[in-house]
């Protein structure tokens, strides 16, 4: 297997690159209907919802700390604070939760 690892990684890279590349390069040649345009316009919001849940629950050592950090992030984001503040707030929320619960 070790000798084939190069090949495995190369092929993994290839099958990862192709779906990223095809629409970027060729979609401009296609006339999209308004419905498809709207559909594609909503993709970021659907993707974010899907990426956040349930992944966030297992992103830290424990579900409790993940929920704590997630709630801090939601609150800071709701207040429209800068995204770096939201990220650090989330990290701090998890850190403090761990500190309090694990001693």
């Amino acid at each position: 297997m070790t000798g084939q690892l190069w090949l495995v990684v190369l092929l993994m890279g290839l099958v990862t690159y192709i779906p990223r590349m095809l629409p970027q390069v060729f979609l401009e040649d296609i006339q999209l209907s308004p419905f498809i345009r709207n559909f594609l316009g909503f993709v970021p919001y659907a993707v974010l919802g899907a990426l956040i849940f349930p992944g966030v629950l297992t992103s830290t050592g424990s579900t409790g700390s993940a929920i704590a950090g997630g709630l801090v992030a939601i609150l800071l984001a709701y207040l429209r604070l800068n995204i770096v503040v939201v990220v650090f707030g989330g990290i701090l929320g998890v850190y403090l939760w761990q500190l309090i619960c694990l001693g």
Binding site: L51, V56, A66, G69, A73, L76, V86, V87, G90
Partner: peptide, 8 residues
């Protein structure tokens, strides 16, 4: 995840 939340 906090970044995703911060965007969404």
């Amino acid at each position: 995840y906090a970044m995703f939340i911060g965007l969404l």
